[in-house]
């Protein structure tokens, strides 16, 4: 269990009267890039937020990096949310310095490097950036945190193909494969497929498939999308 990054023990989560996640138990090993796929409303975001300590569970136990999850797990987990939380009145440069103050583990130099590679103007105000460039800045910030677990909730949604490609390349380039685990939830399955080591399929708040991606291809001749269709049917 020591090499498990995430452990869920009979975890449930209710929003008022609706149950989003019901009595789920699963483990996610550490290392590599893991894709979390499932249809809308399947519970992906809830699972990710529970893992990051952004939601409190209704029942059960969650252990991440050997620690029981509370809000303090944020020291070990970087969370890239679907909605962005950048301040419009900062410039890109100021945003990066601000991140350094918020996250002690933040590698500012790396962030500047990524932003420059992506050709986002450091001196522009966040409020003046296009949606694509905002997304690029967000990715740069998430990838520059020196934490064992990186979570990206729908990093590609609503972005044009060029920005999506940029983001995928940045992930391949900057994730520290040796000592970081990345979980990425997405609908653009075929686009992130070449990037994944492992795939988790969620339905009704439960993990119904957990498989190495190359195993799917080698043993069953299936893509992640094929496997998804088979299981969900």
């Amino acid at each position: 269990m020591d090499n498990m990054m995430i452990n869920f023990y009979s975890v449930s989560k209710k929003y008022g009267l609706t149950t989003a996640v019901k009595d789920v138990s699963f483990q996610i090993p550490s290392g590599g890039i893991i894709g979390l796929v499932g249809s809308n409303g399947s519970g992906k975001s809830t699972l990710l937020k529970l893992t990051a300590g952004l939601l409190t569970k209704s029942a059960g136990e969650i252990v991440v990096c050997g620690e029981t999850v509370t809000r303090l797990i944020a020291k070990k987990v970087a969370f890239l949310a679907e909605v962005d939380s950048l301040y419009d009145f900062y410039t890109v440069r100021e945003t990066l310095s601000f991140s350094k103050r918020v996250f002690p583990d933040f590698d500012e130099q790396k962030a500047v490097e990524i932003v420059e590679v992506l050709e986002v103007d450091l001196h522009k105000k966040i409020g003046a950036l296009s949606k694509g460039n905002r997304a690029r800045v967000k990715i740069a910030i998430a990838l520059s945190r020196k934490v064992p677990l990186l979570i990206m909730d729908e990093p590609l949604s609503g972005l044009d193909p060029l920005v999506r490609e940029d983001i995928i390349k940045m992930i391949a380039k900057y994730v520290e494969m040796e000592n970081q685990t990345l979980i990425i939830s997405t609908h653009e399955v075929s686009e992130v497929e070449p990037l994944l080591d492992h795939v988790l399929l969620v339905q009704n708040g439960e993990i119904i498939l957990s498989e190495k991606v190359e195993d799917l291809r080698e043993k069953k001749g299936q893509s992640v999308l094929d496997a998804m269709k088979e299981v969900l049917r």
Binding site: G32, I168, A172, P194, L195, D197
Partner: peptide, 14 residues
């Protein structure tokens, strides 16, 4: 390995 991964957008482990 890393350069190739970035160029083709594939997992470095692959």
């Amino acid at each position: 390995v890393r350069e190739t991964a970035v160029n083709v957008g594939v997992n470095p482990n692959t």
